[in-house]
Amino acid sequence: MRAFTYERASSVEAAAQAAAGNREAKFIAGGTNLLDLMKLEIETPTHLIDVNGLGLDTIEATPDGGLRIGAMVRNTDLASHEVVRRDYGLLSRALLAGASGQLRNKATTSGNLLQRTRCPYFYDTNQPCNKRTPGSGCSAIGGYSRQNAVVGVSDACIATHPSDMAIAMRALDAVVETVKPDGSKRAIPMADFHRLPGDTPHIETVLEQGEFITAVVLPAPIGGKQIYRKVRDRASYAFALISVGAIIQPDGTGRVAVGGVAHKPWRVEAAEAELPKGARATASILLADARPTEQNRFKVDLVERALGAAIAEAKG
């Protein structure tokens, strides 16, 4: 871990400004991923801006019947919130499927969205990785790729986004609210927030330098059976091989977002139109452009099977 200076931000604006002029600055919230990466010198900020004291830790109702979730709301608190449990069960379920109790107590809403991939080559600084060291190559292609992405991949990167929470946020059409260093605000739909790897896998979101997430807003609840099916080798405390976040309405229509398969939460609206026909029809469109490796080809079948199970569960 490189040496860094440390400050506690006094306001959102001050935080954004402190980061604006310093490309080597990073915000730190829960720290559960950033510190992990700093120890390995995958992240090497020389200045940390502690944003925990900014009061962004509340969950409030919005005028249009949704919820505004402060960026610093801890995963445990979000998953435990009465309204989230009742009206956004998918979000609660996704959060609870992730990490461990200890980590959820620290991890924040915005930090979760900004998690970096768990691709083992990204984590090993001796190995080429375009995401860590642009232009160095992708070791996972042709290497150990069982966990890696099958869709939306590029020749530069087949990493996945590891978040469970983000899958629910994507299915729920959440919107990420930010403040830029100049004080301007914007609202970024989850659909646009994460990027596909393309030729620039090191750029993972549309956030600009110094742009600071203040909240994630959920639209009014849409009801339906909300199911988060995470599939993994061990029963807990493991990243998803794949996960399916589904909201199924009584008439069989619904939404589905899939995790563990792409560089971002994977949702294809055209595929959702097929939901009433079942998992096979839906999955065939959802993963129509899949380019799996030999080692992760199973994910394509697994998505269809897990979605089938989710639909069956929704029908009860």
């Binding site: 768990r118 083992p120 080559y121 984590y123 090993d124 190995q127 070791s139 290497g143 150990y144 080798d233 061990r234 029963a235 807990s236 405390y237 493991a238 990243f239």
Partner: peptide, 19 residues
Amino acid sequence: RGFFVNHDLAGYEVPVHAD
């Protein structure tokens, strides 16, 4: 490259309580 890739306790999955 001749090495064990999943060389930590997240990548090498030993059983947890729930298992």
